[in-house]
Amino acid sequence: MHLGGRPVLDAVTVDIPRGQVTAVVGGDGAGKTSLLGALAGRVPITGGTVTMPAREDIGFQPSTSGVWRDLTVDENIDFVGGAYGLSPELLAERREHLLGPAGLGGVGDRLGGHLSGGMRHKLGFCLAMLHRPQVLLLDEPSTGVDPVSRVQLWRMVAEAAAAGTAVLLSTTYLDEAERAHRVLVLEDGAVLGFGTPDEVIASVPGTIGTEPLRPPGPRSGRAWRRGNIFRVWNPSGHPDPDQQTDLEDAVIALMLARNEQRGAGHG
């Protein structure tokens, strides 16, 4: 897939099972937004195929929340409900089912632009779920959201999946991604890892250890700070069952491994 003449996604394959949450992680420019846009039919692809339900069966929340700021909460709901042709009875049922648990039941007359960031993102989620889509695509729904709203958002995401919706979301928070059924790790449009969080962690070559100070010499480039300690990736190390590695460590190590492979190829 190309944008502006440059490749943004290269041989990325992902399926989105119903009843599961699939998280897409990666740094800026990794291709997360392009992938969701392509799946939502908002970004044209130059190669490969996208197999998705009809557009009316897809829910999409952009990173901007998808809320019309100059409309009230109720007007946002009415506008989206009308676009999908929901009957007044069904719209009333969906409004009550979604807004109450999201903590938005008593702010129907408030403008979208006057909501807090967390409330606006929760409203965007409700808009994406209003028509009961088969597939739900969420582009960084919790970025910049307060901790309490993040918990509420993830509860709503988990409930949507439990009800049978196929959920694909991008996130910058790796602790969130660890809650997903599966994780897709992207960098520069390429896949670094894909599977359950445990499978992604197990795919890291070598080992990741802990040291109190940044190591000197070449090993310095394989170290990163976590709190008051440094984590150090050793590509030739042997697994240590006592060493605890989480998804954040694994993603960083996979990125370091790819950078070293690219550097060796250019040498």
Results as ranks from 00 to 15, higher is better:
Met129Ala: 15
Arg120Asn: 11
Leu90Ala: 13
Gln243Trp: 00
His181Trp: 14
Pro133Met: 12
Glu159Tyr: 03
Leu86Ser: 03
Ala40Cys: 02
Ser116Leu: 10
Trp68Glu: 11
His238Leu: 10
Arg258Asp: 13
Arg231Ser: 12
Gly227Asp: 06
Ala160Met: 05
Val135Phe: 04
Ser236Asn: 12
Gly59Pro: 03
Gly29Met: 09
Arg155Ile: 00
Arg225Gly: 04
Ala102Trp: 01
Glu176Tyr: 08
Gly118Trp: 00
Gly27Ile: 01
Asp246Ser: 02
His266Asn: 06
Leu91Met: 14
Thr172Gln: 15
Met129Gly: 02
Glu199Trp: 07
Gly100Asp: 14
Leu36Cys: 05
Val14Lys: 02
Thr49Glu: 13
Ala202Gln: 12
Leu99Asn: 08
Pro212Ile: 07
Thr22Tyr: 02
Gln152Thr: 13
Thr171Val: 14
Arg120Leu: 09
Val191Cys: 06
Ala160Ser: 15
Ala160Ile: 05
Pro215Lys: 03
Val8Arg: 00
Glu96Pro: 00
His131Lys: 12
Arg120Thr: 10
Ala160Tyr: 06
Ala166Gly: 15
Leu136Ala: 03
Pro218Ser: 13
Pro216Thr: 04
Asn76Arg: 09
Leu192Pro: 12
Glu187Phe: 01
Leu256Lys: 14
Ser149Thr: 07
Gly47Lys: 01
Asp70Met: 12
Ala166Tyr: 03
Leu123Gly: 00
Leu98Cys: 06
Val135Asn: 02
Gly26Phe: 03
His131Asn: 14
Gly47Cys: 02
Ala161Ser: 10
Arg42Ala: 09
Gly5Ala: 13
Asp240Thr: 03
Pro133Arg: 11
Gly26Glu: 04
Glu178Ala: 15
Leu130Phe: 08
Ala23Pro: 14
Met52Ser: 09
Ala11Pro: 00
Leu213Tyr: 09
Leu111Ser: 07
Met129Gln: 15
Val43Cys: 02
Gly47Gln: 05
Asp109His: 11
Pro141Ser: 05
Glu93Ala: 15
Met156Pro: 03
Ala264Met: 08
Asp198Gly: 14
Ile252Arg: 15
Leu137Gly: 01
Arg219Asp: 08
Pro205Ala: 09
Ser34Gly: 05
Glu159Ser: 12
Gly66Thr: 07
Thr143Phe: 12
Thr172Pro: 08
Leu254Gln: 11
Val204Asn: 01
Pro141Tyr: 07
Glu140Thr: 10
Leu39Asn: 01
Gly112Cys: 06
Glu89Val: 14
Asp198His: 15
Met119Trp: 06
Leu130Arg: 06
Gly206Asp: 11
Gly112Met: 01
Ser236Tyr: 05
Leu213Asp: 14
Glu140Lys: 08
His238Gly: 08
Arg55Cys: 10
His266Met: 10
Tyr84His: 15
Glu159Ala: 14
Val21Trp: 11
Trp68Asn: 07
His121Glu: 10
Leu39Met: 11
Val50Cys: 13
Leu98Ile: 03
His131Thr: 04
Leu98Lys: 06
Trp68Ser: 10
Val185Asn: 07
Arg110Tyr: 03
Val157Glu: 05
Asp10Phe: 02
Gly221Pro: 03
Phe194Asn: 14
Met52Cys: 04
Pro235Tyr: 05
Gln243Met: 12
Cys126Phe: 09
Leu213Phe: 09
Cys126Lys: 10
Ala257Arg: 09
Gly48Phe: 08
Leu213Glu: 15
Gly5Tyr: 13
Leu99Cys: 13
Ala83Gly: 04
Arg155Tyr: 04
Ala257Ile: 06
Ala190Pro: 00
Pro235Ala: 06
Arg155Lys: 08
Ser116Gln: 11
